[in-house]
Simulated assay, not measured.
Amino acid sequence: MGLDVYEQESTLFFHDHSENVIKDDLITRLISFPNVLITSHQGFFTKEAMEEIAQITFQNVDAFLTGKELINRVK
C-alpha cells in the first residue's frame, strides 16, 4: 500500500525526528507495517508524472498566448 498524503504531515515530515518519539498513533501504526510505503507527499515525483506536468503546462501557456480555449482554466 502506498500513502502519499497524510492529514497531519506538516508536523511530521521534513523535520528530523530521529531523537524523538512520534506521538501520532496512526502514523506510528502505519509505518510499522512492512507493506506500507509513505512518501511524504512526493509520490507524484516520477519521470512520467513530471513530463506530463510539463507537457500540460506548456499546452496551457500556448493556448493562453494564442487565444485558444483554456481547457484547464480554474474558474
Rank of each mutant, 00 (worst) to 15 (best):
G2D: 09
L3M: 12
D4N: 12
V5A: 02
V5D: 10
Y6P: 01
Y6R: 02
E7H: 10
E7N: 08
Q8T: 13
T11E: 12
T11P: 00
T11K: 13
T11M: 08
T11F: 03
L12S: 02
F13I: 03
F14V: 00
H15P: 01
H15I: 08
H15K: 14
D16Y: 07
S18R: 14
S18Y: 05
V21M: 08
V21Y: 13
V21T: 15
I22L: 09
K23H: 15
K23G: 12
D24C: 02
D25R: 01
D25H: 06
D25Y: 06
D25M: 06
I27V: 15
T28S: 11
R29H: 11
L30M: 12
I31T: 03
I31S: 04
S32I: 05
F33H: 11
F33A: 07
P34V: 02
N35L: 05
V36P: 03
V36N: 04
V36G: 03
L37Q: 13
T39Q: 05
T39I: 09
T39L: 06
H41R: 11
H41M: 07
Q42I: 06
F44E: 09
F44D: 09
F45Y: 11
F45K: 11
T46H: 07
K47V: 10
K47S: 12
E48N: 09
E48H: 03
A49P: 00
A49N: 13
M50V: 15
E51D: 14
I53S: 07
A54L: 15
Q55F: 13
I56K: 15
I56G: 06
I56S: 15
F58V: 15
Q59P: 01
N60Y: 05
V61Q: 06
V61F: 11
A63R: 01
A63M: 01
F64L: 13
L65A: 11
T66Q: 08
T66L: 06
T66Y: 04
G67Q: 06
G67V: 04
G67F: 05
G67R: 04
K68W: 04
E69C: 03
L70Q: 14
I71M: 07
N72T: 12
N72P: 04
V74Y: 13
